[in-house]
Amino acid sequence: MQSTKPSATSTIALADALREQFAGVVLPMWRGAGFNTSLNLPYEAVSADAHRPLPAVRYRAMACARQLFVFSQAGEAAHAQTLFDSLVHTFHDTRHGGWFYSVDAQGAPLDTTKDLYTHAFVVFACAEFGRRSGNRHALETVHRTSALIESKFAADGDLFNAALSADFASVTGTPIQNPLMHLTEAWLAARAATRDNAFDAALRRLAGAIAAHFVHVPTGCVAELPVGARDNLLEPGHQFEWYWLVKQAPELFEAYGLNDALERAFSFAQRHGVDAETGGVCASLDENGAIRDATQRIWAQTEYLRALASHGDAASRDALPRQIALFRQRFLRPEGWFECKTPAGEVARADMPSTTPYHLATAYDALPR
């Protein structure tokens, strides 16, 4: 009897179709209509119909950094250089150090909070840009911003605060999961770009802190808030994202039990957070696996694809082509993508943010070729 299992060739063809749409539609969108040539910054979002930029209220450093990563990874050196120059010129705080969270529609500082999420993405994007371009200023920025994070954002237990005042004098946000995950991502990228062993040591300390303060032992999931916090959440998309990150350097994480924990978290998130019929990944669960927020955001779908691609077992390999096909059918369209959908498939957010291509790019890069 002929096997009905999908072949590796068919999986590659499905993945290639995603990458072709990205290269032919998404990248031109953000080089063109989505890019403010007066400020040399990406708009926050464009409309779904004609790719018109939404009225500008702010521009975020994190959004600029994500676009810097995307165009660096795509090999579009000239546009990446423009984005790097704009990041440094527009968002670097020359008085206090570090990076502004946002500027206003004219490019003047707006929210001067020192945000760990933003600083992590500066490190991440500059590592990718520096690795591909050899730009020494970018690699210096990786080291300088990482040192600032360790000195200014440090909290008890080898954790890092989520936000500080503009002058770093007061804590405005205590440790939470998401910026710590992206700091892990950033230091993995910095490690690859610089070959500096200091990032190995930093990652081991951070891994120990995550294991001690954020891993929900019954499920293995990395919780959104420190374990024991009231109304804590487990986000399936973040379990899949952590799973992929730990896979990139398992030797740095295994001593703290994160490798085993994330295997269990993957299974928990897949069982409770993925709709068996549509493949849609929900936004959040409670600690027992009940759905708290059923919204299906595109980034969580891309993280599921990336986790499946990196899992390695036969069940994940077999599930991957179907999941790619469901993702393409449910979340992509000729003009771009759908940012959020309801479980019934209705569009919950119609515009396309400048931050989403980063999720598409990282997922597509992990799929088979």
Rank of each mutant, 00 (worst) to 15 (best):
residue 178 N to Y: 01
residue 65 A to D: 02
residue 280 G to P: 06
residue 318 D to N: 15
residue 350 A to K: 05
residue 88 V to P: 07
residue 286 D to E: 08
residue 139 L to A: 05
residue 80 A to W: 00
residue 333 R to E: 02
residue 142 V to S: 06
residue 229 A to I: 00
residue 197 N to F: 02
residue 29 M to Q: 10
residue 44 E to I: 11
residue 225 L to K: 08
residue 246 V to E: 00
residue 262 L to T: 14
residue 81 Q to E: 14
residue 250 P to R: 10
residue 330 R to E: 02
residue 224 E to P: 08
residue 232 N to R: 03
residue 158 D to M: 02
residue 157 G to N: 05
residue 234 L to E: 00
residue 167 D to C: 15
residue 284 S to R: 06
residue 176 I to R: 14
residue 204 R to Y: 00
residue 286 D to P: 14
residue 117 Y to S: 08
residue 280 G to V: 08
residue 215 V to T: 11
residue 243 Y to H: 14
residue 139 L to S: 03
residue 1 M to H: 07
residue 182 H to F: 07
residue 170 S to P: 05
residue 358 Y to F: 12
residue 246 V to S: 03
residue 319 A to W: 02
residue 208 G to P: 09
residue 200 D to Q: 08
residue 344 A to M: 05
residue 274 V to R: 04
residue 340 C to T: 10
residue 288 N to E: 11
residue 251 E to Q: 14
residue 214 F to Q: 09
residue 267 S to V: 15
residue 78 A to N: 12
residue 197 N to Q: 07
residue 155 A to I: 02
residue 191 R to V: 05
residue 168 F to G: 12
residue 36 N to F: 01
residue 6 P to M: 07
residue 317 R to H: 07
residue 150 E to N: 15
residue 111 D to E: 09
residue 100 F to Y: 04
residue 217 V to C: 07
residue 307 A to T: 10
residue 59 Y to P: 10
residue 24 G to D: 10
residue 20 E to P: 11
residue 274 V to Q: 03
residue 252 L to Q: 03
residue 61 A to V: 12
residue 283 A to E: 08
residue 333 R to C: 13
